[in-house]
Write a protein that binds this DNA or RNA. Structure first.
Lengths: 235, 235
DNA sequence: GTGCGTGGTTACAAAACCGTAACACCAACG
DNA sequence: CGTTGGTGTTACGGTTTTGTAACCACGCAC
């Protein structure tokens, strides 16, 4: 499985969509695609990607409208707009409705990647203080959403990574199953608490040196789970 | 164990008010209600609830106005707004006047409770902070819910920790067995007072240097138990 | 379609924890 | 001293919580 930042590409023309997809997945990003504005908006809301790549020229709901709609939903996901060459007025309209950067067609692969990186870096700086973290032999890169163990890449699913993120974020504190469900699954889907256990098992199998006697991901009976803090007890 | 947080429900329609009341009390929350904006504002100020559930659609003083009024009084109580489906502009106005989260009608019971939990968690997180305490060789971290003795981690069960927390919280004051049962076990289960003794024994074994002659967890004959205050006694 | 990866549920086994009874002990009071 | 009632302690059965495997469902790629 690929892991990395999640990027939504909204582009109606298949060839261009394919180019963008290949280019981004080749860099380890996880790419979602939509072939029209309406489904793009839907996915943007449902999937909460880290970045949205948006073609302005689309039938029906075009890039400008989609972007404006996003902002009306208070979604602050950075938007990189694809505009045609020479259409200076596009920039103005784009900025007006909340776009963050522009890419002028035709563009080079390197320029695309550079701008994507820049935008992702920006949001990461805002939201995550440290983008890398280590416990035991496990190394986490929040920016790329990748994990290594003894320098060997570990493939985590989306849910697993989200759970790990919550564990790390509240390092040391016990986290109840309820809380996992609220944060990782959101307020609109309600799996059972056993589901949380199951994913904890997966995490342990992938990250623990000895999954039977967890060194890091401890269970707190009657409470929930807790990531053993790398630090010492308080003096 | 349930928090027993106090929640104010401001809702003009009786059926909905009843639903909310039942749903929340069923979870162990203490619920106050108001059937219009004016009395809601009054109760919010007088009772200082932990959370306010606010319907936007009310005659005279509506949810927005009430919320804005609250903030004018520098009352930071989190507000969960009930809005009608599809009224995206409600969110904008709501955020504008200081609402913390939104629940769109019709909503599921689970979603209501999830959002309530999330908001309540936010405030307890702020107030609890990284509280730590020491008596003798025992160190307690309430946030992590962990205890050390001579810097060696001590494994306490959920009940034991809750009892210790109560002892520490009322340091010096004797605590009756009935009080332990009320606070630690809640109002829904009724074990014997002997049960309390048993857990006290466990605590002593885990925390006291010499469990036979307790240095810290003292028995007050005919009354209950008491944690010897770490400070110097008044003469 | 088929196959695969992911995610959610169910069911059952294992472990941890809890509640209570029984009895020994002790403190207070006469 | 002896009685009485409260407390300490232990053992054990029952309950709750957690681990885990097996299974089904869904989405996506081929």
């Amino acid at each position: 499985m690929k892991s990395g930042a999640r990027i939504l590409v909204v582009e109606d023309e298949l060839p261009m969509r394919t180019v963008l997809f290949d280019c981004l997945t080749g860099q380890g990003y996880r790419v979602l695609t939509a072939s029209d504005g309406a489904s793009g908006l839907e996915k943007a809301i449902a999937e909460k990607p880290d970045l949205i790549l948006l073609d302005v020229m689309m039938p029906r709901l075009d890039g400008f409208a989609l972007c404006a709609e996003l902002r009306r939903h208070i979604i602050a996901t950075p938007v990189l707009m694809l505009t045609a060459k020479g259409r200076v007025e596009d920039r103005v309209r784009g900025l007006d409705c909340g776009a963050d950067d522009f890419l002028i067609k035709p563009f080079s692969r390197d320029e695309l990647l550079a701008r994507v990186r820049a935008l992702l870096r920006r949001i990461t700086r805002q939201t995550l203080k440290s983008q890398q973290l280590t416990f035991g032999a496990v190394q986490i890169d929040f920016l790329q959403q990748r994990v290594w163990r003894n320098s060997v890449p570990v493939a985590l699913t989306a849910k697993e990574f989200a759970m790990l993120q919550l564990l790390v974020h509240a390092a040391g504190e016990p986290i109840s199953r309820e809380r996992f469900l609220d944060v990782v699954w959101g307020y609109t889907s309600f799996p059972t608490t056993r589901t949380v256990d199951k994913h904890i098992v997966s995490l342990r199998m992938k990250l623990e040196p000895n999954p039977d006697t967890p060194r890091w991901i401890k269970t707190v009976h009657g409470v929930g789970y807790r990531l053993e803090p790398p630090e010492e007890p308080p003096k």
